[in-house]
Design a protein around this nucleic acid. Structure first.
Length: 790
DNA sequence: GTTCTAGAAC
DNA sequence: GTTCTAGAAC
């Protein structure tokens, strides 16, 4: 091979030892962007041997495959030549294997021919005799479709140099640079010529959100035009551009551009479409007048926000500060980025919390007030500003609910519709919250006791967020009762928590009355005292979400009875009914397959990998990941998780251990795998079965939204959590809301949203973000590093 | 659970 | 024209 000069290469004779150092240059551009012309122009007057690898001609002049291109390129490199990869390379996934050609021995460059779409289309439409047979009318549609998928290359993909060309002149300059490159020379590393990298990204999310005018999608338009976008779709952008600073730019620097789409969504949503999303704006608690340490406070904010957002979808939290030089905002931004907090759900905002809508065009239906223990107006800062802006009605409404507040607590006050803050800003509730005080001039001074201080600050944020949740939970329940069609998924922020009305404010606070009469009737009967403790073993009455385990210790929920459920809870009534339906459910013939195997495993030795008296292990017939096995209970009558009670705990633990053992065995074969063990809330197949599934989700059998969401929403109940809950309450919380299966498609690592399964799959194949902290920290994953779970 | 397919979306 | 989803049938 080494002595087989490539016929495409005019200078394949090679050079001395130095000339053996090749270079890989990936051209990136739509059809018609001039990739082949670029290669030809460089090669016509090159000072080093080049090979052009073109997929359209690689198979004896005909269209070939990607692997043929890879082989041809590798051979040329081995021969000491430099290689142009002349294919569109518009998506990261398409580029990845070519980048690997470098293997640290050879520099890999990208030249991006990012010319106007209109120009590419007109060239493609006009040309005849194109190598890839892409010409004429068909070309316009193809170019447009390809450009929609465009992901601009990043250095983090493995390129040492990226040159962006936006005009014919830029192209000429780039040709010249590569022309002049001597046999042993190299061009300096870095990104050159990039402009306005968000152009396409904004378009992407606009399309995703179906906000782009139909005509903009027509073939002849320059779809990268920023002007079109803003004029057509983002009215009033100017009025808010200066104040809205939802900027977590450092987040996931090395992830694919779809994550960038998420960043765009963050600001887009903030501008115009958060009216229908429950949004809480809150100031930093205790860091101003109460002089709490900013570093510690920012850690607590980020942790609390992260915990909360893990529990709910379609809700937003906004940390607000008046100053654009705010230290707390910048600390939180930095830490939120580091923690991979979902950037479309958590924002920072520079501005006046009482004028978010009128000055910032940013609608928040709930705002938090960092108040004083007497819940009185005045003092200064946020408290004074909110009382002033809300008028007397806030003071009156507050008095009706509570007289005082102790540190670490909060109280919800519905804002009368006559309040200027309600009328003008659309704020429906104010949540007063009191944090720890480190200022000796103020009451409850903690004398620099940061152990106690941090605990109280965590409690304060937990209480604040729980109270925020209680507002939309009660509203939703009411809506769902009013509407026979139920709650649409897009507006349902619940991630499956058991519906409860709760408050974390002081005992004397009046809890009824802040929601409307119908809800009131339902919620009034809810026990707020220790009596509820006895009812915790009520079937399906456990807490809603595994994360609350940690909170419950801190907040002593049993004492407050705030998150307990009982049969008087409307959310629970619905739930119990559903559970009854599930247990009585009839199973179709196709759903009996596992049941049949469980009862007679010896007749299915072809599929059964391990057999014991009470379970069998088998490969999932349609695995949704590289490794996906089922640990199948053999107990008759135990069909799904809602059937499981305390007496089944030994069985559940044995199944868990078996699952763990198989995961560890797979890890010995491939240490890069990571496993999760759990149950589907509502299984499709009869007979209790535990899924042991690797988190790559790399499988052709993973085909639709239901497949994805059944493993990546609260529909999937981690085995370790289920066991803990059954130990504690006698039953496991089961999220029977099937709308979970219809949720938007989000990457299980970085939480970026994707419009369809193929796009999601190509993203997850490359996403390097860590798995969610609640899985990592609660021992719910089995990896080579941990090799343990639960 | 899967397969098939009409029709929507691109 | 191709891709993708979602609902029906099994």
């Amino acid at each position: 091979m080494e002595n087989d000069p490539n016929p495409h290469d005019p200078s394949s004779a090679g050079g001395g030892e130095e000339a053996k150092k090749g270079l890989v240059v990936l051209l990136v551009g739509a059809p018609g962007s001039g990739k082949s012309t670029f290669c030809n122009d460089v090669m016509a007057a090159a000072r080093r041997p080049w090979v052009r690898v073109c997929q359209d001609t690689i198979a004896n002049g005909k269209q070939g495959t990607k692997s043929q291109c890879l082989m041809s390129a590798a051979a040329a490199l081995k021969d000491g030549k430099s290689v142009f990869i002349d294919r569109c390379n518009l998506e990261q996934e398409q580029r990845a294997d070519f980048v690997k050609l470098g293997e640290a021995q050879v520099a890999v460059h990208a030249v991006v021919l990012d010319l106007p779409a209109r120009l590419c289309i007109s060239r493609s439409v006009k040309r005849t005799g194109h190598e890839g047979k892409l010409q004429g009318g068909k070309a316009a549609a193809v170019v447009n479709r390809m450009l929609q998928k465009k992901e601009l290359p990043k250095l983090s993909e493995g390129f040492s140099r990226i040159t962006f060309c936006h005009s014919e002149n830029d192209v000429k300059e780039a040709v010249k640079a590569y022309n002049n490159l001597g046999p042993s020379g190299n061009l300096s590393a870095g990104v050159f010529g990039q402009k306005n990298k968000d152009d396409k990204v904004q378009l992407g999310i606009m399309r995703f959100l179906k906000k782009v005018d139909k005509q903009d999608q027509d073939a002849g338009k320059d779809i990268t035009s920023d002007q079109n976008l803003t004029q057509a779709n983002v009215p009033r952008q100017d009025s808010i551009g200066n104040t809205f600073t939802a900027e977590l730019e450092n987040k996931n620097e090395d992830q694919g551009s779809l994550n960038d789409e998420n960043s765009s969504e963050r600001s887009f949503v903030g501008r115009s479409s958060c009216n229908d999303v429950h949004t809480l704006a809150f100031p930093s608690i205790s860091t101003s007048d109460f002089q709490f340490d900013l570093e510690k406070a920012s850690d607590i904010i980020v942790d609390s926000v992260s915990d909360f957002l893990n529990k709910f979808d379609s809700v937003r939290l906004v940390l607000v500060d008046l100053s654009d030089k705010s230290k707390i905002l910048s600390l939180v931004r930095k830490k939120a980025a580091k923690k991979n907090i979902e950037s479309n759900k958590f924002f920072t905002f520079v501005g006046d919390i009482t004028q978010l809508y009128t000055k910032g065009n940013f609608r928040c239906n709930v705002i938090a007030n960092a108040t004083n223990w007497r819940l009185k107006p005045g003092g200064g800062g946020v408290n004074a500003a909110i009382y002033r802006a809300a008028g007397d009605s806030l003071e009156i409404a507050t008095k009706e609910r509570a007289e005082t507040l102790s540190p670490g607590n909060s109280v919800v006050v519905p804002l009368p519709s006559s309040s200027p803050l309600h009328l003008r800003e659309g704020v429906t509730h104010v949540i007063h919250v009191l944090g720890p005080n480190m200022n000796l001039q103020r009451p409850n001074y903690l004398k620099n006791d940061y152990v106690e201080g941090c605990k109280i600050l965590r409690d304060a944020y937990s209480s604040l967020f729980e109270n925020f949740a209680s507002i939309f939970k009660c509203q939703m329940r009411n809506e769902s009762k009013r509407s026979s069609s139920g709650i649409s998924n897009s507006q349902n922020p619940l991630k499956g928590t058991t519906g409860t009305c709760f408050s974390h404010s002081d005992q004397k606070i009046k809890l009824e009355g802040w929601y409307d009469s119908e809800r009131n009737k339902k919620c009034k009967g809810f026990p707020f005292n220790a009596a509820a403790k006895e009812k915790i073993s009520t079937p399906h009455g456990g807490h809603g979400y595994a994360h609350s385990e940690t909170h419950s210790d801190v907040l002593n929920w049993d004492e407050n009875s705030s998150n307990l459920t009982s049969s008087s809870n409307p959310g629970l009534e619905v739930k119990e009914k559903n559970c009854a339906e599930v247990s009585k459910r009839t199973w179709n013939a196709w759903a009996q397959a596992l049941h049949v195997i469980a009862l007679n495993p010896e007749k299915h030795k072809d599929v059964v990998m391990e057999m014991s008296d009470d379970f069998v292990v088998l490969n999932d017939l349609y695995p949704k990941a590289t490794k996906h096995v089922l640990v199948l209970s053999r107990l008759h009558g135990l069909d799904c998780l809602v059937d499981v009670h305390k007496e089944h705990l030994p069985l559940l633990k044995r199944m868990h251990s078996a699952g763990l053992k198989w995961a560890k065995m797979f890890l010995c074969e491939d240490s890069s795998l990571i496993f999760r063990l759990g149950y589907h809330s509502v299984p499709s197949m009869r007979q209790l079965h535990l899924h042991v599934i690797s988190q790559d989700f790399d499988s052709a059998h993973l085909k639709n939204k239901k497949h994805w969401n059944s493993f990546n929403t609260l529909f999937f109940r981690d085995s370790a959590d289920a066991i803990k809950e059954i130990e504690k309450h006698g039953v496991a919380t089961v999220i029977e809301d099937e709308s979970l299966l219809k949720m938007e498609l989000r990457c299980h690592r970085c939480r970026s949203a994707h419009p369809n399964i193929p796009r999601l799959k190509s993203h997850i194949a490359n996403c390097k973000a860590p798995l969610p902290t609640h899985l990592l920290h609660n021992g719910l994953l089995v990896s080579a590093a941990s090799k343990s779970v639960g």
